[in-house]
Simulated assay, not measured.
Amino acid sequence: MASKSAVFFDRDGTLNVDVHFLHEIEKFRWVEGAVDAVRAVNARGALAIVITNQSGIARGYYTEEEMYRLHEWMNEELQKHGAHIDAFYYCPHLTDGAVEAYREDCDCRKPKPGMLLRAMKEHDIDPARAVMIGDAARDVECAERAGIRGTLYAGGSLLPVTLEALDSCGI
């Protein structure tokens, strides 16, 4: 039986200000309350996991290596504030992508639940003690398809939304 709790965060528009196809560290800006939200998840003993569509890879706008560097930098910045992301899951696919290697109809592009299901299995996460927070209807739909709660983040500080989501799952 799965035992861990988790908060899954969408990346662009939820943890960071949505910049079209963000991959450059110098363009990265945290959403208000994002660092505190991740720290709150960590403090409650839950996993903080990013679930993000990254079709810019399939479009040829940036590489997986550039995305990895950005994710590593995000964690370095969070660690300066006593917080961390436990894992990053991403979907680089797009059915009509410019880069043939990523041109496919996968099960991981949100709103499909593949990334969430894989993360829950790999990290032994109890669906009753998990929630997905995202800024788009596809994030909530993805959560529901994976059998967990979905919370729509509509702007403002991410911290109160995260605290409410944690409470709703008994975390």
Rank of each mutant, 00 (worst) to 15 (best):
A2N: 15
K4P: 03
F9I: 02
F9R: 02
R11V: 07
V19F: 07
V19W: 02
I25P: 06
E26A: 11
K27I: 12
K27L: 14
F28E: 00
F28N: 04
R29E: 14
V31L: 00
V31I: 14
E32Q: 15
V35M: 03
V35I: 13
V38Q: 03
R39W: 02
A40G: 10
N42V: 11
A43Y: 03
G45R: 02
A46L: 06
L47N: 02
A48Q: 01
V50Y: 02
V50K: 01
N53M: 12
S55K: 15
S55R: 15
R59H: 10
G60M: 11
G60E: 09
M67Y: 08
R69T: 08
R69H: 12
L70H: 02
H71M: 11
E72K: 14
W73V: 08
M74K: 04
I85G: 01
A87Q: 07
Y90S: 12
C91V: 14
C91P: 13
C91H: 06
L94N: 09
T95V: 15
G97H: 06
A98N: 09
A101E: 13
C106D: 06
C106H: 09
C106Q: 10
R118G: 10
M120R: 14
K121L: 12
D124P: 09
D124H: 09
I125L: 09
D126G: 13
A128P: 00
A130Y: 07
D135W: 04
A136C: 10
R138E: 14
E141M: 14
I148S: 04
I148M: 08
Y153Q: 02
A154R: 12
L158S: 01
L159M: 10
V161T: 14
A165T: 06
D167H: 11
D167C: 08
S168A: 09
C169T: 14
G170P: 05
